[in-house]
């Protein structure tokens, strides 16, 4: 069952701009790329001198929906994948982002803003792989 979602260009642009502001602020304040897989993966690394700011960023990330829920009511999401798919997907996302040094935020937002060739290639590859995975699961075997 594919859940149809409405096209929401305005909230998408506004939310995207907030993500951009976050990236600019983290660079201006701490000199860091706002790449979630780098921030989270770094926090999990064996020995690292700057674990605190990474954990604080993740706390902010998790606190944001709580604030929205307190201020504006429930945040509803739809997860179509079953438990085994979620485990496989989680492992692939975890390993893939560390192996490839970034995800939608680090390569997608920050790296493409810097016109990094590595980021442009990464985004092209993960977009294509994501679309292929969706096509196979929804249209070929779904």
């Amino acid at each position: 069952m594919d859940a149809v979602t409405p096209f929401t260009p305005v909230s998408a642009l506004v939310g995207g701009a907030l993500i951009g502001l976050s990236a600019v602020w983290l660079m201006a304040a701490n000199g860091r790329i706002a790449g979630i897989s780098g921030i989270a993966g770094g926090a999990l690394a064996p020995s690292i001198p700057d674990r605190l700011w990474r954990l604080m960023f993740v706390i902010g990330l998790i606190a944001a929906p709580l604030i929205v829920m307190l201020a504006a009511g429930p945040v509803a999401i739809t997860i179509e994948a079953g438990p085994l798919t979620l485990i496989a997907a989680g492992l692939l996302v975890g390993i893939g982002t560390q192996m490839g040094s970034g995800c939608t935020s680090g390569h997608g937002v920050c790296g493409m803003s810097l016109l990094s060739p590595r980021s442009l290639v990464s985004v092209a590859v993960f977009m294509a792989a994501g679309a292929a995975a969706v096509f196979i699961t929804r249209h070929l075997i779904g």
Partner: peptide, 29 residues
């Protein structure tokens, strides 16, 4: 590594619809 990592990440992203940021934020739900 860059290309292989992006491919693995993209497949995982397409299987569940979660990349790292939204997945961490959704922990609040």
């Amino acid at each position: 590594r860059l290309i292989g990592g992006a491919a693995l990440f993209g497949i995982g992203w397409g299987l569940a619809g979660f990349c790292p940021g939204p997945a961490l934020s959704a922990a609040a739900l």
